[in-house]
Design a binder for these strands. Structure first.
Length: 549
RNA sequence: GGCCCUAUGGUCAAGAGGCCUAAGACACCGCCCUUUCACGGCGGUAACACGAGUUCGAAUCUCGUUAGGGUCACCA
C-alpha cells in the first residue's frame, strides 16, 4: 500500500509536521509535582452543575500543586453551538472565582499553547491524522450516514456488536486508485483509525479516583476527523492534551466507555499518557429511581438556576466541596472562616459512587455561608441580585441603604448568628414588613389570648413604648404592663401558675409582634421596633386595632 | 443485550482484616434555652444489598447473584 500517495490525496493542503508542533509546544518546565489540568466545555449555552464540579477539581488540583489551569473550548460540533455560549462560560468562571492561567478568558486568549478553540486547531489535528495515514494507522472512509445505519440494523439483526470493525470496516483496505477516483468525484470522507486491538485482551489503567480499571482492547475503527476536517472529541482530546502538556485529565465517568480508544490513540501517536481522573456523576431521585442530573428535567442541573434563585456562588462551591472531598465538612467546622482555597483538597478523598443532589443539605450549607457574611456584604449581594431579578425589592433596598443594612444586621455576627437566609430570593419575604409597600399583614393572633385583651394591648401599648430605652428595660415595661391587665408580670410567674393568669408577657409580646410585623415569626421584636421607629410602631398598632373590629 | 463503573442509615459519608457494641454532617423526632422565629445545647430513631469462599477473625479481601448507574454517533 502506498501510504505516501494516500496521504497526499487525503491531505492536499500545506501542513506543518508533527515535529514542528512538538517544538512549538515544548514540554513545560514546571516544578516537580505541578499539575496541568484543563476544563474543556462545549459552547452549548448551558453550564451544568457537573461542569462546575469538574472545574473545581481541575482548578484546585492545578493551583494547589503550583501548576496551570487551562480553559479550552470544545467547539468541534457546529450543530450544538449557541451564540454567546463562550461568554457564558467565562462569566461562570468569573462568578465562581475559578482563575484561568491559560486559554479562553473574557479578555481573549492567553497562554503559549493555543489556540484554545478547537476549530482553530484544525490544521494541527490534520497534521497528526496525516502522520497516522502515512504510518498505515488511519484511512479514509466514504460510508454515508445511510450506509452506517444499514450496517447497524444488520448487526442488530445478527445480534452482533454494533460499530465499524472487522468485516464491517468495508473501506479499511480500499486501494489507492479507488480512493483517488472517489476524491476526484468530490465524495466526502471521514478519517478512521485503523484499530489493531483485540477485544479478547484487556488493558488496565490506574485511575486517580477509581483505581485500577480494566477494559477490553478496542477494535472499533472510530472516526478521527469528520468529513469537514474537524476532529471528533476522541482525537481532539488526545492531540490537545498531549500538545498542551496536560498532566491530569479530569472528566466525567461517561468517558470510561471510550477510554480504550484514547489509550490506543496515545499509543499509536507515540504520546505519553496523562493521568486520568474520572469523576462520578451527580444524581437525582426520579420517582423511585436514581439517575444522572438531567439538563432537560432538572432545573438544579443548570448553573443558571442558582443565579436566578439567588444562591451565592460560594454556597454552590461549598456544597460541591462537601461532595467532592469527604473530609471537607470536618475541616469547615474546624476552620469556620478560612478561605476555601486553604482546604487541602485531595483526589484520594473523592467519592467513587454517584452522589444524590441533596437540596436540604445544600440549603443548610448556604445558610452557613450567608451567616458568615457581614450585613454590608449581604446588602451588596442582595442589591446586585434584586437589580436583575426583583425590581420592587431593589427599589426598597436602595431607597435608604442604611435602613436596609440595619435590618440585615439583626442578629448577625457573634457566636450564634441568625440563619434565616439560604438564598437571596428569600430576602423579600424576610424583611417585607419593614416596607409599607411590601407589608402584607396576617393579623392572626395567638389563640390563647382573649380578643378583648388583644384590643386592650394594642390600644395601650402606643403610650407605653419608649424607643429611648434598651432591650432589658423595653421588655421590663412589657412585663410590668402585662401585670396590670391580669397577665403574669414575668414568664417564670406564669409558668408556675398558668391558670391564675389571662396570659404571659410572651403573649403580650406576641400580640405586639403580630400587629407590628404582621406575622407570628420575626427576628427580635425590640430590634424590629427600633428600626421601624416609634411613629411607625404606633401607626401599625392602630392599623391592627382597626382591623380587629 | 455487550462492555464498564458502583453498592454502609432517608441523603452525603468515615472505615485500608481485630481499634466497630459502625464516626460525623443534613433531614426527622424529643427535651433544654427563649418575648415568637432563627440560632445554640443535649438526646433519640435509623445502615454494612444477598450468598458462598479465604481467615483464628470480614463492613473491609475473592467469586457469584441482585440492584442502580454509565456507554454503545461524522455529540461532547
Amino acid at each position: 500500500m502506498d501510504y505516501q500517495r494516500l496521504a497526499a490525496l487525503m491531505f492536499p493542503q500545506e501542513l506543518k509536521t508533527p515535529e514542528e508542533y512538538e517544538a512549538l509546544f515544548p514540554v513545560r518546565n514546571l516544578p516537580e509535582g505541578a499539575k496541568i489540568t484543563r476544563m474543556a466545555p462545549s459552547p452549548t449555552g448551558f453550564m451544568h452543575l457537573g461542569n462546575l464540579f469538574g472545574a473545581i477539581v481541575d482548578e484546585r488540583l492545578a493551583h494547589l500543586s503550583g501548576g496551570k489551569f487551562i480553559l479550552r473550548i470544545e467547539d468541534t460540533d457546529l450543530k450544538r453551538q449557541v451564540p454567546g455560549a463562550v461568554e457564558l462560560i467565562t462569566r461562570v468562571f468569573g462568578q465562581y472565582g475559578l482563575n484561568i492561567d491559560e486559554g479562553v478568558t473574557s479578555d481573549g486568549e492567553i497562554g503559549e499553547y493555543g489556540p484554545y478553540y478547537q476549530r482553530q486547531r484544525a490544521p494541527i489535528y490534520q497534521a497528526f491524522a496525516k502522520k497516522l495515514v502515512l504510518e498505515g494507522k488511519a484511512y479514509p472512509c466514504f460510508c454515508t450516514e445511510q450506509d452506517l445505519e444499514n450496517m447497524r440494523n444488520l448487526q442488530e439483526q445478527r445480534h452482533e456488536n454494533p460499530g465499524y470493525y472487522g468485516e464491517y470496516a468495508v473501506h479499511r483496505d480500499m486501494d489507492v486508485d479507488t480512493v483517488e477516483q472517489l476524491i476526484k468525484e468530490g465524495k466526502p470522507f471521514v478519517v478512521r483509525f485503523r484499530s489493531t486491538g483485540d477485544p479478547d485482551k484487556t488493558v488496565t489503567i490506574d485511575d486517580q479516583i477509581k483505581g485500577k480499571i480494566s477494559v477490553p482492547e478496542n477494535n472499533q475503527d472510530f472516526v478521527l476527523l469528520k468529513s469537514d476536517g474537524i476532529p471528533t472529541y476522541h482525537f481532539a482530546h488526545v492531540v490537545d492534551d498531549h500538545l498542551m502538556r496536560t498532566s491530569v485529565v479530569v472528566r466525567g465517568e461517561e468517558w470510561l466507555s471510550t477510554l480504550n480508544w484514547h489509550i490506543q490513540l496515545f499509543g499509536a501517536l507515540g504520546f505519553k499518557m496523562p493521568k486520568f481522573a474520572h469523576t462520578s456523576h451527580m444524581m437525582k431521585v426520579d420517582g423511585d429511581k436514581k439517575r444522572k442530573l438531567s439538563k432537560r428535567k432538572d432545573p438544579e442541573a443548570s448553573l443558571d438556576f442558582y443565579r436566578t434563585e439567588g444562591y451565592p456562588p460560594e454556597s454552590v462551591k461549598e456544597y460541591l466541596m462537601t461532595v467532592i472531598n469527604s473530609n471537607f465538612e470536618d475541616w469547615r467546622i474546624a476552620n469556620p472562616t478560612a478561605p476555601l482555597e486553604t482546604f487541602p483538597f485531595s483526589l484520594k478523598k473523592m467519592s467513587v459512587s454517584g452522589t444524590l443532589f441533596d437540596m436540604d443539605k445544600f440549603r443548610d450549607v448556604s445558610k452557613n455561608v450567608i451567616a458568615r457574611m457581614s450585613a454590608e456584604e449581604v446588602y451588596d449581594r442582595v442589591v446586585d441580585w434584586a437589580q436583575e431579578f426583583d425590581q420592587d425589592l431593589y427599589n426598597c433596598l436602595t431607597r435608604d441603604p442604611d435602613y436596609a443594612k440595619s435590618i440585615l444586621a439583626i442578629g448577625r455576627g457573634g457566636k450564634k448568628p441568625r440563619k434565616d437566609l439560604a438564598l437571596w430570593s428569600e430576602v423579600k419575604d424576610y424583611l417585607s414588613f419593614f416596607y409599607d409597600e411590601l407589608f402584607n399583614p396576617d393579623y392572626t393572633m395567638p389563640e390563647n389570648v382573649a380578643k378583648e385583651d388583644v384590643a386592650r394591648i394594642l390600644a395601650d401599648y402606643g403610650d407605653i413604648y419608649n424607643p429611648e430605652v434598651d432591650m432589658t428595660e423595653w421588655f421590663n415595661a412589657i412585663c410590668q404592663y402585662s401585670g396590670t391587665i391580669g397577665f403574669a408580670s414575668s414568664t417564670k410567674e406564669y409558668k408556675q401558675n398558668p391558670e391564675q393568669f389571662r396570659g404571659s408577657p410572651g403573649d403580650t409580646s406576641m400580640v405586639l409582634r403580630v400587629a407590628v410585623c404582621g406575622r407570628q415569626n420575626s427576628p427580635d421584636l425590640f430590634s424590629c421596633m427600633q428600626i421601624l421607629g416609634a411613629d411607625k410602631v404606633k401607626a401599625r398598632l392602630q392599623e391592627a386595632l382597626n382591623k380587629l373590629n
